[in-house]
Simulated assay, not measured.
Amino acid sequence: MSGALNLTELREGGTQDLGEVNRIMQDSFDPRFGEAWTSAQCLGMLALPGVWLVVASLDGEDAGFALARAIGDEAELLLLATRPDARRRGIAGALLRAIVAEARARGVVQLHLEVRAGNDAVRLYRREGFEKVGERRNYYRGKMGQAFDAHTYARKLG
């Protein structure tokens, strides 16, 4: 069924979704790289002004999410994850486009994101118009203490 888009729903999420967000994140982010957030970090972020969560369902089951925040006329994609068994079905792209649409609706003119160097998600970000604008050496800390670079990307929305 790979490649078939069965996306049934994109919806605004909230604190009631944190349990599922955490499960998706733990399934999606390889602990070797230290990219996953804790539940407390997600809860703290959702409490801030300008933050929004989009949840994607596939065949009635939560399959992915995106978390972003806007400050003034700029926004940042904080997290984007799709369950491994639901990948390659357009979910991440749909979530990213939903974040872009909401950012525009909030008056954002530039959207930023950060991603581990070598992460396959870079293909999606480039396809959706993001360009690399910077690098942070040794930014992520993996489970075994290894350091991984982060690359920053941006896309103009205005």
Score class of each variant (00 low, 15 high):
Met1Trp: 10
Met1His: 15
Ser2Gln: 15
Ala4Tyr: 07
Ala4His: 04
Ala4Asp: 08
Ala4Ser: 08
Asn6Val: 04
Leu7Arg: 14
Arg11Tyr: 05
Arg11Ser: 08
Glu12Gln: 05
Thr15Asp: 09
Thr15Ser: 07
Gln16Phe: 06
Gly19Val: 08
Glu20Thr: 08
Glu20Pro: 01
Glu20Arg: 04
Val21Phe: 00
Val21Thr: 01
Asn22Pro: 00
Asn22Phe: 06
Asn22Tyr: 03
Arg23Leu: 09
Met25Glu: 11
Gln26Ala: 02
Asp27Glu: 09
Ser28Lys: 12
Ser28Leu: 02
Pro31Phe: 01
Ala36Ser: 11
Ala40Val: 12
Ala40Trp: 09
Gln41Thr: 00
Cys42Arg: 06
Cys42Phe: 13
Cys42Trp: 12
Gly44Ile: 12
Gly44Thr: 15
Gly44Met: 12
Leu46Pro: 11
Ala47Trp: 09
Leu48Tyr: 10
Val51Trp: 12
Leu53Thr: 06
Leu53Asp: 04
Leu53Ile: 14
Val55Gly: 00
Ala56His: 15
Asp62Ser: 06
Asp62Val: 10
Leu67Asp: 06
Ala68Arg: 04
Arg69Val: 11
Arg69Thr: 08
Ala70Cys: 04
Ala75Gly: 15
Glu76Leu: 09
Glu76Cys: 14
Leu78Pro: 13
Leu79Trp: 10
Leu79Met: 12
Arg83Met: 11
Asp85Ala: 12
Asp85Asn: 10
Asp85Ile: 13
Ala86Pro: 00
Ala86Ser: 07
Arg89Lys: 11
Gly90Pro: 02
Gly90Leu: 05
Ala92Thr: 15
Ala92Val: 15
Gly93Met: 08
Leu95His: 13
Leu96Cys: 12
Leu96Ile: 15
Arg97Met: 14
Arg97Ser: 14
Ala101Asn: 07
Ala101Ile: 05
Ala101His: 03
Glu102Asp: 13
Glu102Cys: 01
Gly107Pro: 06
Gly107Gln: 13
Val108Glu: 01
Val109Lys: 12
Val109Glu: 14
Gln110Lys: 13
Leu113Glu: 11
Leu113Ala: 09
Val115Thr: 08
Ala117Phe: 01
Asn119Val: 03
Asn119Asp: 03
Asp120Val: 06
Ala121Asp: 09
Arg123Tyr: 04
Arg123Cys: 02
Arg123Gly: 01
Leu124Asn: 10
Gly129Ile: 06
Gly129Ser: 07
Phe130Pro: 02
Val133His: 01
Glu135Phe: 00
Glu135Asn: 00
Arg137Trp: 10
Arg137Ser: 12
Asn138Pro: 00
Tyr139Ser: 07
Tyr140Gly: 04
Met144Glu: 06
Gly145Pro: 03
Gly145Lys: 13
Ala147Ile: 08
Ala147Arg: 13
Phe148Leu: 02
Asp149Phe: 01
His151Ser: 05
Ala154Val: 11
Leu157Ser: 12
Leu157Cys: 13
